[in-house]
Structure formats: C-alpha cells, structure tokens
C-alpha cells in the first residue's frame, strides 16, 4: 500500500522566502495526520501543495503513489475544508454540498440523496434549503465538511477548521471529527497552530518551523521526547534547560527538556531554587523558579501547598522525566 501523501525534498519558495524548504514527509493511508506549527511555519503551504493550489519549486509529491505536480486541483481526488469555510454565498446549503457531484455530472436525484446523507452525517439534517448566510459559524463549518466528504475524497485536507469556533464548540467538533475519520477511513490531514488540538486528535504529528519539519511522531513521542528546543517549547510549553544547567542537574552537557508537571517541590534531597512568581490556573498552580539564573516552570496540582514569592525551595523530578536532546538541539 503506497503512502497517502509523500513529499520528497519538496520546496516552495516565494521570491527569496522559503515557505517550504526541502521537506520530506510520509502520511499513511487512513491516518489522522496533524501539521502543527506557528503561523508562517510552512504548514499551510504544505497543505496547499497537496490540494494543488501551489506547485513545488522543486521536489516530488505523490498522492497514493501518483505524481501530483502538474495536476490541477480539479483533477485531484482530494478535498479541502477551508479556514473561512468558503461556502458559495449564492447557493443554498444542499447545492453547496452537492457542488462537486453537480460538476461531476451526477443526476438531480443522486445529488439530493447524497447531499441529504452528507448533511445527516454532520448532524445538520433538513438544513438543505437555507443559505450559508443564515447559519452560525459552527453550522457553516459542518456544511463545509459535508461538502468535502460527499465527494469521498482519498485525502481530506482541513486548514485550521476549528480556529473560528468558541472553546466549547471546538472541543465538541474535535471529538466528532475523530469519530468521523475512524468511521470513514479517509486520510485526514489537519493543519493547526494549537498544540492541544493536535495532541488530542492526531494519530501522528509533524511539527513545522521556518519551512522545515522539526519532528514527526505520535503525540506521545512529540510530547515526551521532543527532539529540539523548538519542539519542546512549542508543544506543551516544556522547560528547556541549557547544557550548563543540565550538566549541573544531570551531569550531561546537553540541551534537555523537563515537563512542568513532572517537577515536585519540597523534596529535601532536591536542588535549590528561589520562587519568583506564582499564578493560579484553576486546575493547577504554576510556580516560577529561578535556578542559577534560568527560569523553570512547575505545575502544582490543586490542593498542594503553594510556596510564596521569594521563598527558597528544593525541587526534584523523576529520573526519566529529564529528556536529553543532544548538544546541538
């Protein structure tokens, strides 16, 4: 079985800007794949390269083993859910959903049947006659999803689809998308800048920065064993410790990361530190420590005693919680 999507040394340059720079990438068929990174990191350009809206400056792209460069978007069996949904304002919901079928020449009866089935799948049965302007943001997003899925694409691309939704709706949609993906077995490629979203939804994650992939792996791998300082910092806001500090704490002169929730306070055999600040987060309290000039965040579960500012404390961690990343990370 070929990869759903594979990039071989793919670059996309805009003038002197290297939006995507020599990227290698393999997405398995049937996978829920997330591209995670800050804005401008190249993740959206990669998505557009798969959709066919952009062409690589160099390199080779395959979709299910077929060459993609030079193939226009309308001939790719790939569909996109756009960030702003891009619903056609002049068509009602049913015609929006059936647009791809209409272009393909499907008959009226088939279009009506399929559109209604797709709307039911995204929990909007009976909304066919409305205009996009009469829907809420969440409903528009579901229509956009139905419009893409009705074509049964080989790969579904989602460009920050939950970005415009409020927190509650977003969590609900995350759950539904996961269920839908498993039920349909379609490869989902999902672009987001929200690490929580990527960690909770994806089977695998590629972390982007400055046009390159920093690390690819399962959420667990990315979270527990970041390979670079950028990944450690961007995914889950881990503490990144300098080689000097790591040498003092663990005896190895390498960059390392230490999760705030893996640190305990009050262990008499631990290291010395000074509390420089505390902030209450609801389910936990964040304590900021100064350890020989470097800042380390600690997450204390609610109920644990919170030290006051200026207090000297001792801290410790599980031996394998300190993750070494090499001298050049």
């Amino acid at each position: 079985m070929p990869y759903a999507v594979s990039f071989q040394q793919v670059s996309r340059h805009f003038g002197t800007v290297r939006a995507v720079d020599a990227v290698d990438l393999e997405i398995e068929a049937g996978e829920f794949f997330a591209m995670l990174g800050p804005s401008g990191s190249g993740k959206t350009t990669c998505l557009r390269l798969i959709a066919g809206f952009e062409q690589p400056t160099s390199g080779h792209i395959e979709i299910f083993g077929e060459t993609a460069e030079g193939v226009p978007p309308y001939r790719r069996n790939v569909n996109t859910v756009f960030q702003d949904y891009a619903l056609f304002p002049h068509l009602n919901v049913a015609d929006n959903v059936a647009y791809g079928l209409m272009i393909r020449g499907a008959g009226k009866a088939e279009r009506t049947r399929e559109a209604e089935a797709a709307l039911e799948m995204v929990k909007l049965p009976g909304y066919g006659a409305r205009k996009p302007g009469q829907l809420s943001g969440g409903q528009r997003q579901r229509v956009a999803l139905a419009r893409a899925l009705v074509n049964k694409p080989k790969v579904l691309l989602l460009d920050e689809p939950l970005g415009a939704l409020d927190l509650k709706l977003r969590e609900q949609m995350q759950e539904e998308l996961k269920v839908l993906q498993k039920a349909l077995g379609i490869t989902f490629v999902f672009v987001t800048h929200d690490q929580g979203e990527a960690l909770s939804m994806a089977d695998r994650i590629a972390v982007f920065n400055e046009g390159r992939i920093m690390q690819t792996g399962t959420p667990e791998e990315i979270y527990r064993r970041p390979r670079t300082r950028f990944v450690a910092d961007f995914v889950g806001s881990s503490n990144v410790l300098s080689p000097q500090l790591t040498e003092r704490l663990a005896g190895v002169a390498e960059w390392s990361s230490l999760r705030p929730e893996d640190i305990r306070l009050g262990d008499e055999s631990g290291q010395d530190a000074t509390v420089t600040g505390t902030s209450f987060l609801g389910s936990a309290t964040r304590v900021t420590l100064d350890v020989s000039g470097e800042k380390i965040n600690v997450l204390l579960p609610s109920g644990a005693p919170v030290p006051s500012q200026g207090e000297s404390v001792r801290f410790s961690w599980d031996k394998n919680a300190l993750h070494l990343m090499g001298a050049g990370a």
Partner: peptide, 14 residues
Amino acid sequence: SGSLIEASMDLGAD
C-alpha cells in the same frame, strides 16, 4: 474571495 474560486476548483470544477 479567492478561497471561493479555490473551493470550486478543489471540488472538481475547472
């Protein structure tokens, strides 16, 4: 918006 045209092409329209 440009994304409407892209959406149409994405859905198979030349």
